[in-house]
Nucleic acid binder design. Structure first.
Length: 468
RNA sequence: GGCGCCGUAGCCAAGUGGUAAGGCAGAGGUUUGCAAAACCUCCACCACCGGUUCAAGUCCGGUCGGCGCCUCCA
């Protein structure tokens, strides 16, 4: 498998002991509804790994995920607004987050550490940094001294001498040796003290910062270096740079061997944001009647590294495309013809399978794998329409689709439409009417079936049904 | 201002040197009792300018346009 791209060369990923370990940034924080998060998740190779053994076999990698919970300004502020305890709010976010996760058919990670339960680890990590001279205390806050870490800026390709400071931060609020140093733990403010969201340390009452949270939990659960770190391109700097600085300054090795950064989801030409009124969430889409699978398929339509310009028409197009795959599955399941499999079908399936694997192995090129998938569809459909496919052929194709979907997780392999006795009776009656050339009767029966939610399609190999 | 990413048909989107995958929409056709589905055919001067090369969407330089980040909003 290879990952990376853009200006940087793609790098081969070697799986160690046949298993990759990855940390996935997916914080169920106050911004949980942020659609970018959902996009990150679905389009994210980091979740590819979570797709299990089959995914691993297909070269997408597998392993342990990590999704740190958070304690951050927004969540704290939100809990204050709602007048609920911080852990109650994070519990709620966590539940909602898992609901989204399930809707998007993502497999859960192995660990979901809560920041609030790992503050000791964060403080211990901060202490180690101070002891090693990599961080310093200043007015009861502790800052990381980036001058002690020569590789600072390598990951994000940011030249620290050119960072424009104070652009987004009120520098008067902080007292640092160097404006570029970042906060590890910050002294608690009055509101936090009042609400007891604060932790006693040798430096005073503090609250851990974002970067130390992730660094502490990742190193605790994944070790000082793990294989793949996924994130969004907007988090490369400063967050990924900083969490890496913490880890690498201590261990001498980069926090992760590979960093995968997903592109943004744009709407109306801009990164989605609630303040700009351009935010759209998974929940909004589900409310409009789209399924999680459809949204997932849409999000997978763009290579993970590129940005996706969200629009409902393109989502609708993706839905139609997915419908075609699901229709094929249903049709294949209704093939009953006996006989040996055709060698050409076997060859076509094998070739498509190999090509799809290659595409996924090449920096998770899902769009390419998808295109190849449709090329097979075009080979299979004519045989299906002509009724020349045998049951065994159909199973071969179904097996391929199933295996591919172990990675994509977008198709519908649910139980075939179960036909109750009434529907079955109507179908048989319609078949008799058609055989007797009583088409008026047949059409009336089709209308009746449609009213029951069953679409009937006639093929040379007999009628087939779709339930909608 | 700095750093980075991007600009492929009406729309979405692959393609990191050898004369443009796939999907949606559209047009024509085949098949079908009808319908649906499906299949076939058609639909790209790869933002612009210049350069390197036998050969460039693909490499280099420039222009225009879009997006992200620039230390705590995550």
């Amino acid at each position: 498998m290879r990952v990376g791209g853009g200006a940087r060369a793609r790098a081969p990923v070697r799986r160690r002991h046949g298993q990759g370990r990855g940390a996935v940034r997916q914080p169920p924080g106050a911004d949980r509804r942020h659609p970018r998060r959902a996009g990150e998740a679905a389009a994210h190779p980091g979740h590819g790994p979570a797709r299990g053994r089959e995914a691993g076999r297909r070269g997408v990698g597998q392993g342990r995920g990590l999704q740190p919970g958070r304690v951050d300004d927004k969540t704290i502020a939100e809990s204050g607004r709602r007048g609920v305890r911080l852990d109650e709010l994070t519990d709620l976010f966590k539940r909602e987050f898992f609901a989204d996760l399930t809707a998007l058919r993502m497999l859960p990670a192995d660990h979901y550490p809560r920041a609030t339960e790992h503050v000791e680890d964060m403080i211990a990590l901060t202490r180690r940094l101070v002891e090693r001279g990599l961080a310093y205390e200043m007015q009861r806050s502790v800052y990381f001294d980036i001058s002690k870490f020569a590789a600072y800026g390598r990951l994000s390709r940011v030249d620290r001498t050119k960072i424009k400071t104070g652009a987004t931060v009120d520098m008067d609020y902080y007292n640092k040796d160097d404006a570029h140093d970042f906060t590890l733990v910050r002294r608690s403010d009055l509101a936090e003290l009042r609400r007891r969201i604060t932790y006693k340390t040798e430096w005073g009452n503090v609250r851990p910062g974002w970067h130390i949270e992730c660094a502490a939990m990742a190193s605790k659960y994944l070790g000082e270096q793990f294989d793949i770190h996924t994130s969004g391109e907007d988090l490369t700097f400063p967050h990924n740079e900083n969490e890496n600085a913490i880890c690498e300054a201590l261990s001498g090795r980069p926090m992760a061997r590979y960093w995968l950064h997903a592109g943004m989801i744009l709407r109306k030409g801009k990164k989605m944001s609630r303040s700009a009124g351009t935010a759209l969430t998974l929940r909004d889409l589900l409310a409009k009647g789209y399924t999680g699978s459809q949204v997932r398929y849409y999000l997978l339509g763009v290579h993970y590294r590129r940005h996706l310009h969200f629009s409902l028409p393109s989502l609708d197009a993706a839905c139609k495309e997915l419908d075609r795959l699901n229709a094929l599955i249903l049709s294949l399941r209704q093939v009953r013809a006996a006989g040996d499999p055709h060698p050409e079908v076997d060859r076509a399936v094998e070739a498509a399978d190999a090509d799809c694997c290659d595409a996924l192995r090449d920096d998770l090129n899902v769009p390419q794998a998808r295109a190849r998938l449709f090329e097979l569809v075009k080979e299979i459909n004519p045989r299906l329409a002509a009724g020349t496919l045998t049951r065994l052929d159909a199973e071969l194709v179904l097996d391929y689709l199933y295996r591919t979907d172990r990675v994509l997780a977008v198709m519908d392999f649910g139980a075939a439409p179960t036909l109750d006795e009434r529907v079955e009776a109507l179908l048989q009656e319609r078949d008799r009417a058609r055989a007797a050339a009583d088409y008026a009767r047949a059409d009336a029966l089709r209308a009746e079936l449609l009213a029951l939610g069953v679409t009937v399609e006639d093929t040379p190999a007999g009628s087939r049904v779709r339930r909608r």
